[in-house]
């Protein structure tokens, strides 16, 4: 037993603590994530390898062989689908890192209430969760890109543009899910529903495997509202120069940023309201 070397009120610089609150939460989330690093890496590497083998070497070979040497839009099929697959990987990565920690923070272990008892504010907790999720998304996408380059599926010059386009999708989706999860009062399997009835249709009907324009017009709106399509289109233009009107370029970036703003606009007040209860 010992007493404390204690100088009440002397240890903390409030301004410094307040300034870096969001980063402290992100730091904690990444530290927690590191406990599951094996799973994160296995998931990050396993997915691209499976997709490469099944789609790149399977469907891709079929598509390339039947397009009279022209391939899809002048590039290999794998190059065409890569931006969409990367967007999907980024979205799945942030989905896991936003939804479960937020449920844990508000409902399961209620850790957000402990964090909010420090100098960290409610909006900084939201930011921290988002930033950590983006770090996870970036890590997953980087692994994916590494595999694509290793298999010579994309040129190395495409790495940065594809990282950028997929992270835009990750950012947009992270804030949307932050807002959605912050509203949940109970764990009733909503994420399985979102995965099956929101993410899966968006992934399948957003021009992932063929250009959106080839789909029936009544299905195309799914792509228009989906971050997958906007991110994939950006990635295709940035990585191999797929043709795009400058206005559409702005529409794609603008829409993803719009989702970020809307997501945060709904998430911040909900975080504040729940933590003040």
């Amino acid at each position: 037993m010992s007493d404390l070397n204690f100088k009440p009120g002397q240890a903390v610089d409030p301004q410094k603590a307040i300034r870096w609150g969001s980063l402290r939460v992100a730091e904690y989330r990444i530290y927690s994530m590191s406990k599951w690093m094996g799973s994160v890496i296995a998931y990050g590497l396993g997915n691209p390898v499976l997709y490469l083998v099944s789609i790149g070497l399977g469907i891709g070979a079929l598509v390339d062989a039947n397009s009279a040497g022209q391939s899809v839009l002048g590039v290999s099929y794998l190059q065409f689908v890569a931006p969409a697959l990367l967007a999907a990987a980024a979205i799945q990565g942030v989905m896991d890192e936003v939804t479960f920690p937020t449920m844990d923070g508000f409902i399961w272990d209620k850790l957000f209430y402990a964090i909010n008892a420090t100098s960290v504010s409610s909006y900084q907790i939201a930011n921290g969760v988002m930033l950590a999720a983006l770090a996870r998304g970036m890590f997953t996408v980087s692994l994916y890109l590494g595999v694509l380059v290793a298999f010579a599926a994309i040129p190395i010059s495409s790495v940065l543009p594809l990282l950028l386009s997929s992270m835009f999708a990750a950012w947009a989706w992270s804030t949307v899910m932050l807002a959605v999860t912050a509203r949940l009062e109970r764990d009733e399997g909503y994420f399985a529903i979102i995965g099956r009835f929101v993410i899966a249709p968006m992934f399948l009907f957003s021009g992932t495997f063929y250009p959106l324009q080839l789909m029936p017009i009544y299905l195309q709106p799914i792509g228009w509202i989906s971050p997958f399509w906007h991110s994939a289109e950006l990635g295709r233009t940035l990585s191999y120069g797929a043709a795009m009107e400058p206005a559409m370029f702005l529409v794609h970036i603008g829409y993803l940023l719009f989702l970020v703003v809307v997501g945060l606009a709904f998430a911040y007040p909900k975080f504040k309201q729940r933590l003040a209860k």
Partner: peptide, 15 residues
């Protein structure tokens, strides 16, 4: 946040 920097909080549930 400024006040909380100088508070120690032990909630009812340990959290």
């Amino acid at each position: 946040p400024e006040i909380r920097a100088h508070l120690g909080v032990v909630p009812q549930k340990d959290l």
